[in-house]
Design a protein around this nucleic acid. Structure first.
Lengths: 219, 219
DNA sequence: CGGGCAATTGATAGATGTCAAGAGAAGTGG
DNA sequence: CCACTTCTCTTGACATCTATCAATTGCCCG
């Protein structure tokens, strides 16, 4: 079952049209779980997520994957590989359970002031989310880290239903573990524990939990 | 004893001189361990580290501090608070054992293309370091995380002496713990363990270790 | 039908946080 | 200059969280 999710594709304003150039170079479609580029690749392009979700992940010394960033419709990547021209520090792929549609943008994005403003905004928010995740990884329990991810998903794709929140869970258990920096087993144990305590319910790819429960993830 | 450390203060090129405006608005001097701004403050200025070290830290839910970024002479901050105009997400302070000198830069930095290029470079490197640290926090031991910090200090202020590296350790044990996301006790235990195994020696604020030992921290 | 993968549960070991206590260093005030 | 306080650094004992290993189930896909 596909989760409906209204994309917030941003318009680039008059700047692009005035120069009568198309901003979108070409569309890209990814099957579920397929890789767009790999850690170490050298080309640096600008993509925008149109539908579906993308994950940016790196492998650690021990061969474990860590999802460094989760991308939603409207998000651009990779912003910082544009700033320096170093090779990609991570692998970009669609989530294992969902296909994704992307736009590969025209290389002269820097001449479009509207787009540049959007990119700067997204870059700053990305850094803030990373700080939050670093703090959580450093000093909080697996439960708190999962809560943080749930709060993120609620912000980006959740809807209220009475006093509870319904949020999409496009991630497999393995991906959720890679995003929270814990093992699959610990992640599952924590989820079932939350369900047993009546704080969280799920069916298929939808999670449901109390509003105040999510708020306890605030930093 | 003060550690000598050659600052790599970058020149801003002809752009600033051409407009015959001074880039440096005013100098700032911080005593050891004093706070420049706090998490939640709303003013967003651009500073450059001239001498000494700065730390950017945030407090987690449990009241623990985590050092999110360590700044060396030549580094600018806070770059991403300039991009959006949200309040600071962390507290900026000099290290507890060293004073620091800063430059508060003129607010029209965006019109200086040379400076913008430098800022973009530093921003990208900062994000890459954060990804590295996130991966380390998620899946590596305290020893590996300390090694990562030592490698960083070696890159930024170390010197070779024969086959071994001598590197400055401006951080107190507490700060080193906050930077590696572990408790002070675990940090100390790991350090003494490394010394007992003959891999690391220290006297005062200088650490000495083998080159190949540091290389084992590479990702 | 069979193979492979995701999800789940149990048992166990190991790493690390927490608490407690003491030594040393540094700052402060008389 | 000396007592006093305060903070950092250090070590030990212990509890607890979480990774790891192992095994089972169920599902999807060929």
């Amino acid at each position: 079952m596909q989760i409906s999710f209204q994309p917030e594709i941003l318009s680039y304003g008059a700047g692009a049209r005035l120069r009568s150039q198309p901003v979108v170079l070409r569309p890209v479609t990814l099957r579920k779980g397929s890789i767009l580029f790999r850690q170490g690749d050298r080309q640096s392009k600008l993509y925008q997520v149109v539908s579906g979700w993308m994950k940016l992940s790196r492998v650690s010394l021990k061969g474990q994957d860590l999802i460094v960033e989760l991308l939603f419709p409207g998000d651009h990547f990779d912003l910082h590989s544009l700033l320096d021209s170093a090779p990609y520090g991570f692998t970009a792929a669609s989530l294992s359970a969902h296909p994704a549609d992307l736009h590969c943008l025209h290389p002269d994005y820097w001449s479009n002031p509207n787009l540049v403003r959007i990119l700067h905004q997204q870059l700053a928010q990305q850094i803030r989310r990373q700080h939050e995740m670093m703090a959580a990884l450093a000093s909080e329990s697996v439960e708190q880290r999962i809560l943080l991810v749930l709060a993120l998903l609620a912000r980006r794709g959740g809807r209220r239903e009475g006093s509870s929140m319904v949020l999409p869970m496009p991630l497999s258990r393995k991906e959720l573990a890679e995003l929270t920096g814990s093992s699959v087993e610990s992640t599952i144990r924590t989820l079932t524990d939350l369900q047993r305590r009546g704080l969280l319910h799920w069916s298929g790819q939808e999670f449901r939990c109390g509003q105040d429960f999510l708020n306890s993830a605030r930093c």
